[in-house]
């Protein structure tokens, strides 16, 4: 995993589909164990009905990232506990 520690706002979603890079293959939706990714009804610039995060339930497991064939279409933010 490419792990990079950055400060993020806790209100951010835990995963994000970059809508204009999504080809609508649906593999992230298929493999999300929490069923928290869904298709939109809209077409993106590439002409695909793209996937999006439903807004809740993501645990940051990363399965969608590897299921997605596009290099940059999915970004996952995985919460890490501060070391004491």
């Amino acid at each position: 995993m490419t792990e990079e520690y950055v400060e993020i706002d806790l209100s951010l979603p835990s995963m994000k589909v970059v809508s204009n890079l999504c080809k609508g293959c649906g593999l992230c939706i298929e493999h999300c164990p929490k069923d928290c990714i869904e298709f939109t009804d809209k077409f993106n610039e590439l002409g695909y009905k793209y996937a999006k995060y439903s807004g809740e339930g993501c645990t940051g497991c990363g399965i969608c990232f590897y299921a997605c064939p596009e290099p940059g279409a999915i970004i996952v933010y995985k919460k890490v506990r501060e070391k004491k």
């Binding site: 490419t2 520690y5 950055v6 993020i8 290099p71 940059g72 999915i74 933010y77 919460k79 890490v80």
Partner: peptide, 24 residues
């Protein structure tokens, strides 16, 4: 709180310029 970011690995080009003028 910190987060680990899982995103496009660095060994990819930032933009795929060899691909052509669009959809890089």
């Amino acid at each position: 709180m910190k987060a680990a970011v899982l995103e496009k690995p660095k060994a990819f080009y930032d933009k795929f310029e060899r691909k052509g003028k669009t959809q890089q």
